[in-house]
Computed example of a mutant assay.
Amino acid sequence: MAPPSSSDHPAAAAVEAAGAISKVLIVIAMQTEALPLVNKFQLVEAPTDESVFPKGAPWTRFHGNYKGLHIDLVWPGKDPVLGVDSVGTVSAALVTYASIQLLKPDLIINAGTAGGFKAKGAGIGDVFLATDVAFHDRRIPIPVFDSYGIGARKTFATPNIVKELSLKVGKLSTGDSLDMSPHDESAILSNDATIKDMEGAAVAYVADMFSTPAIFVKAVTDIVDGEKPTAEEFLQNLIAVTMALDVAVTKVVDFISGKCISEL
């Protein structure tokens, strides 16, 4: 991802040359998280027979125009066998890859819910803008491969968004499990993470590959180092926290409207 200065990002230079940001891609993991934003931005679902995605892919795309921006919102859809949201790094990476290739966004927003660590200042309903991302469950104990597995990278710097919207900031750690094993806990501590999710670092990996600026807006549904079981607390808070996520993402998009990439 980008170094601290946004203007140094190779994709930023290309977008800057074209003027104001015009195409925003929102990548989101769950239908419950996606639908409030679909309604807020008055997006319409692309019919199956007009889908830009390959035949057979369960990925869903909503699109429309909002305050001078063309917004595409994509989510990986439902597992065709089990009927649950296709969460996790594989689905997130695939739909991000396809969306970058086919929709060519100026900027990606990966929005979603996350677990938070009270020891790092996170509370239920807090919304964070991730400053860094890394994986915590790709353990490859071989020199250099170990760093590849962690995949630590800076996110695209947006100091003006942070200042204007008074969002919390913190490092994000990503893995494919909702719970936290002792191995994962050790890796998350090494990543110095404030929040953990199941998609962010995978989206960042693909965005980095194709030099597309990406930012990560995460709302806390459960306290990982708290007393309640993670799954129970996640389900208990999902709807209410999704509303907080909806408000935060709307404010971010409102801020982006009419601005160049260097103004973020």
Score class of each variant (00 low, 15 high):
Asn65His: 14
Asp146Met: 10
Pro54Trp: 08
Asn39Asp: 11
Lys78Val: 00
Val206Met: 13
Ala114Glu: 02
Ala98Gly: 06
Phe117Thr: 00
Gln42Leu: 13
Glu233Ser: 05
Ala122Phe: 00
Ile21Lys: 02
Phe210Val: 04
Pro58Gln: 10
Ser186Met: 06
Gln101Ile: 09
Leu82Thr: 08
Ala240Cys: 05
Asp222Ala: 00
Val74Pro: 12
Ala2Arg: 11
Val220Pro: 03
Lys259Cys: 13
Ala98Ile: 08
Ala119Trp: 01
Ser5Tyr: 13
Gly83Gln: 06
Asp106Tyr: 11
Ala18Arg: 15
Lys55Trp: 06
Tyr97Val: 01
Val224Met: 10
Gln101His: 08
Lys251Trp: 10
Lys40Gly: 00
Ser6Ile: 14
Ala214Gln: 05
Thr131Tyr: 02
Ala240Met: 05
Leu167Met: 08
Val95Ser: 09
Asp106Thr: 10
Gly226Ala: 01
Phe216Tyr: 15
Ala119Lys: 12
Ser173Arg: 03
Lys218Val: 00
Gly125Leu: 01
Ser262Lys: 14
Val162Tyr: 00
Glu185Leu: 11
Val15Ala: 09
Val133Pro: 02
Ile108Gln: 09
Pro58Ala: 09
Thr221Lys: 01
Ser22Cys: 07
Asn39Glu: 14
Glu164Ile: 07
Ser211Val: 09
Asp49Asn: 15
Pro10Val: 10
Gly121Leu: 01
Leu189Lys: 14
Asn39Pro: 00
Ala202Asn: 04
Thr221Cys: 01
Ile256Leu: 14
Phe216His: 13
Lys171Gly: 03
Ser147Met: 07
Ala157Asn: 15
Lys168Ala: 04
Ile71His: 06
Val253Thr: 04
Lys228Tyr: 01
Lys228Gln: 06
Ala12Arg: 08
Val81Pro: 00
Ser186Phe: 02
Met180Val: 14
Lys104Ala: 13
Thr158Leu: 03
Val81Lys: 15
Asp197Thr: 08
Phe62Arg: 07
Ala214Arg: 06
Leu245Ala: 02
Asn160Ala: 15
Ala152Phe: 12
Gly112Val: 04
Tyr148Asp: 02
Leu178Pro: 03
Ser7Gln: 14
Thr158Cys: 15
Ile100Ala: 12
Ala152Arg: 15
Thr32Tyr: 00
Arg153Cys: 11
Gly64Thr: 01
Ala187Ile: 02
Val144Ala: 10
Ile142Val: 13
Gly88Leu: 06
Leu102Phe: 05
Gln236Ser: 13
Leu264Tyr: 07
Leu264Arg: 01
Gly226Met: 03
Asp184Pro: 00
Glu50Thr: 09
Val220Asn: 04
Gly56Thr: 12
Glu164Lys: 14
Arg61Asp: 11
Val203Ser: 08
Pro143Phe: 04
Lys118Cys: 02
Asp197Leu: 06
Asn65Ser: 14
Val44Asn: 13
Asp49Tyr: 12
Met243Arg: 13
Leu102Gly: 07
Phe53Thr: 12
Ile223Lys: 00
Phe53Gly: 12
His9Phe: 15
Lys168Trp: 00
Ala187Pro: 00
Ala187Thr: 04
Val169Met: 09
Glu45Met: 10
Ala231Glu: 01
Ser99Ala: 13
Ser166Cys: 11
Ala111Thr: 05
Phe145Ala: 11
